[in-house]
Design a protein around this nucleic acid. Structure first.
Lengths: 335, 335
DNA sequence: TTGAAAGCGCTAACAG
DNA sequence: CTGTTAGCGCTTTCAA
């Protein structure tokens, strides 16, 4: 069932049929309605390959993520997919597996498929390489959840600094005065910004930041255990609050605090960032930030769509997404 | 940069260039090498839209899953994507969000994109509807991890019965003689087959199955808690082993056993199915089955690829994937 | 408001 | 072994 068939049945030219299908202005209302009803009746589906070929657009976008089994990227991916689906685009997902070389490969292969735009959750391709790839093809790009060195581009990410500030203030509001931080690596943007937000809040409430109060992990459960041990040792268990840089590290922290017979929240109040399903099941349930994954995905998709529709839009937007507190028992000391 | 450009530079006809690019036999070796080197030098990338249009194939396959944030579907998706990438195909992922209506929609939209084949992790579309959709277009289909009523098709799934048998035998081998089961819903194939494997093992070792020893949950943490409470009540805590139908329910079980001061594994040995990252962090670490997610994905991809390449292959294969035991401390009673 | 004809880049069929 | 011709389904001129 092609446009030609539809046109024949309707007794019009193929072009008129095309006009009807694509909402062109120059067509009589009745003709259009007739054609549309015939198309519907015969389950006409336009051939996207032909359309692409002619218009030099693919009606597909590319999404590069490190790993889909990570809930964050999963949620983001779904949001992006749904947004573009509404606009008749398909989403090609590609994986970088956390490696720069694979990331570049994925980008190349997406470009070969003539995607109309790309959303990239980078693991840190150097900006210059990215710039070469994209400028030469002039394909719109939106980066999520990481900044790319040496590349000014559109970007959507957590407002890590604000969010960290929010958590820290919350512990303070709950009466904590000796707050520790299990930070992620400062070499990573998200780790550094969370660190900065912590410092900012501490400053603002007039608490001194003792370097003993800050330890580092690499986002894993195991490193959370290790970091907590170190933190307790360095501070002689004088802490009354701890912020964990992410929820996996918080998970490690729970078991260590448990082993030390430190009660949450009465001895130590604890809070963390990501709202994983599992934090509800911890004892006590862990205070975290609300999930903004799908908001990030949708904002990135929206921005990319605009860029595709208006390629002359040269504005570079950095969109920071703020989360809200999800207060649970692990920080409730006042009630 | 098109084939025509390449042909001009090489001083051959456009068709000859095409022959070189597509590994056709009828071409002189030197000509081919010349053309390939020119193509490489100019970063020639074939226009897939044109190719599709001409050959009536899209070089893409569709994957329909309920939800990508589920680790199982994530792993399966990655495996499928990687397999088809090797063969020059892209994978279009679509979500059913666990709803039949969305599942049908997703299938329709994939068909509109003229995918060459579909892999479906169904939530239970009725077979007749699926049959209509696919037979009319004659598109190869492989179903994963669920059976579709009234539809004979290629399918790849966990050997749930065998796996359940394996876990039950393991508890027996560890000395358990009063084994309970927290089953998933028997209305779901995976729940029922796990149930059957449990019964089979119990029979084989000559243990009687008391109906008090079997309770039901709906795969969630919460239902695991409830089911465990019920189980302990019904049996008066005489159990020395429990199989949980999945790891989330096992997670709920842990907290209840803990509250009842029942020690794992000395009082009760426990084991479960899915090997989530989190089970390593439980105290004690939980014995589970090995992860076969990516094996399932790869087998499904391989089968679909065969069907695409040999559309006359009418054989319907049901591939059952067996797991192995991953013994951890939660069942170690002998050593 | 509509139609005719050309052509996007590629490959199948057929000739040479 | 290589080239010519036609056409996949659609949209874009341009003319009516």
């Amino acid at each position: 069932m092609t446009l030609k068939d539809i046109a024949e049945i309707a007794g019009v030219s193929i072009k008129t049929a095309s006009r009807a299908m694509n909402d062109y202005p120059d067509i009589k209302k009745e003709t259009k309605e007739l054609i549309l009803s015939i198309a519907k009746e015969h389950h006409y589906v336009p051939n996207i390959a032909a359309k692409s070929l002619r218009q030099n657009r693919s009606y597909s976008i590319g999404l590069v993520v490190p790993d889909l089994t990570n809930v964050f990227f999963g949620e983001v991916g779904i949001a992006i997919h749904n947004y573009f689906k509404k606009h008749g685009y398909s989403t090609l997902i590609s994986f970088s597996e956390g490696q720069k070389s694979t990331e570049i490969e994925s980008l190349d292969s997406l470009l070969a498929k003539q995607v109309d735009g790309i959303i990239l959750a980078t693991v840190g391709s150097t900006g210059s390489r990215l710039k070469t790839i994209l400028k030469q093809k002039n394909i719109p790009l939106v980066v999520i959840d990481n900044v790319v060195n040496n590349l000014r581009t559109n970007i959507v990410l957590h407002d890590n600094q604000y969010n960290s500030y929010l958590l820290t203030r919350h512990l303070y509001d709950q009466g904590c005065r000796n707050i520790g931080l299990i930070s992620g690596p400062l070499s990573e943007t998200s780790g550094r910004r969370r660190y900065e937000g912590f410092l900012k809040a501490m400053h603002e409430v007039g608490l001194e930041v003792n370097s003993n109060h800050i330890v580092y992990g690499d986002w894993t459960i195991k490193s959370g255990r290790r970091a907590t041990e170190q933190l307790l040792e360095q501070t002689g268990s004088t802490l009354d609050g701890i912020i964990a840089g992410n929820s996996l590290m918080a998970f490690g922290m729970y078991s260590v605090l448990n082993e030390h017979n430190l009660h949450i929240p009465s001895d130590i109040a604890v809070a963390s960032f990501d709202d994983l399903e599992i934090v509800e099941a911890l004892d006590p349930p862990l205070t975290t930030l609300s999930k903004v994954d799908s908001i990030i995905g949708e904002l990135a998709a929206k921005r990319l769509y605009t860029l595709i529709k208006k390629p002359d839009d040269q504005e570079l937007l950095e969109t920071l997404v703020k989360a809200e507190l999800k207060v649970r028992r692990s920080t409730l000391r006042n009630s």
